[in-house]
Nucleic acid binder design. Sequence first.
DNA 1: TAAGATTTGTTCGTATGTATG
DNA 2: TCATACATACGAACAAATCTT
Lengths: 244, 244
Amino acid sequence: MTKRAPVWASIAATLRAEIAQGVYPPGGKLPTEAALSARFGVNRHTVRHALAALAEDGLVVSRRGAGVFVAAAPRTDYPLGRRVRFQQNVTASGRTPSREVLRIETRPADDAERAALGCEAVHLFEGISLADGLPLGQFRSSFPAKRFPDLPEKLHRLASVTAALAEAGLRDYTRASTRITAKLARAPRAGLLRVAEGAALLRTEAVNIDADGVPVEYGITWFVADRVALTVTPEPGAHPADVS
Amino acid sequence: MTKRAPVWASIAATLRAEIAQGVYPPGGKLPTEAALSARFGVNRHTVRHALAALAEDGLVVSRRGAGVFVAAAPRTDYPLGRRVRFQQNVTASGRTPSREVLRIETRPADDAERAALGCEAVHLFEGISLADGLPLGQFRSSFPAKRFPDLPEKLHRLASVTAALAEAGLRDYTRASTRITAKLARAPRAGLLRVAEGAALLRTEAVNIDADGVPVEYGITWFVADRVALTVTPEPGAHPADVS
DNA sequence: TAAGATTTGTTCGTATGTATG
DNA sequence: TCATACATACGAACAAATCTT
């Protein structure tokens, strides 16, 4: 005599699974109640009951006249501090960081790299940073090839810039300058980052230097704007002299 | 005997004026050479001569097989330093800054303002910042009404936050924190900023504090991403203690 | 700016199955 | 067996917010 689960509960479970699988992405719109009731062959009330259960869990948010939307995950704060600490940033927000390496290669420097690093050949390290499996951004970092001959092997093995540079003898490096603009996601990158074409991306262009002020990394990162907020907090102790 | 200007020169002048008026926005595509020669009733070579003149000035860029495009104006660098200096930033890039005031009013604080300023009523100062007449961003600043009773009048008269606060007795104030995200421009704001709907905007949310660390301004600014780059440069003298 | 279509929110009413006393 | 209460499910209509044209 197993008690049959209510229809609304099984519908809620189905939708819950589909949301988890990304069928309806964060911030995305669910089908209308009418469409769902047609799909499941039930009355609209029954669908509403299921949706109410999801809303109870904070999984969806409904807006009268607009639709029912998958609750957008809160943005991950990404402090543009003196040090680059991707893992810490993600972990601090209660998520699990991961990294997907797309490319490691050595090639001649392009104009921007030559200007930033002042060298003719660079190691390239390109990949995707994820939090809980969801892409936060795509990074592309260049390093002077001459100074760090074995960096590609270390990057392959460690998949971490900080660790690889440390093994290459660079104890510490800091952010010298960052330029922030915004772009729209286009075909190839939109797919990599799992966003719709035309979604807003934050593009940061950063130069990192060693303790002597010599540039050691030139990096460009495209963050998914819906998933990341960059934060800037002037460090205490600095007191610039500037005049209005 | 006034020497008649060559036809190609007058066509160039016409196109130059239309680009300046925004008929062809920065980055936008000009009509094809064939279309232009039809419009002006001249041979395609004449149009090419005119376009070559514009290209010489760096006003347009032609790409074989794609078309001729209005050169994107270089982005105005906007340093997120400790002080907010809009005028300096624009002047430094060789442009003429101006400001268009949209709204000055006093009203109850919303949740974000209450959280940032800790007060129940705020003065609102809203407007557009322009460089050479082109909108760079829309700002909306809130100030604690109780602390600065006469601020609206001062803002009306001076149209400058720094000057108005100075007159209200606030000698100095600095940026405490800034949060940066990106959004797509929607209907009302897109018009105000003179960009297409769906263009990328940089949204900054900043809290400024006085010398005692008390918040005095909560401001949100939407920058047109194509026209502005935010720059972050850690100030010398700071030496944070952080560990990997 | 205005009108119409779309979509969720709310409130009636009806019917069925199940547990309880 | 009957009455009651409750959760479930379907149907219809309208209100209110939103989107589109």
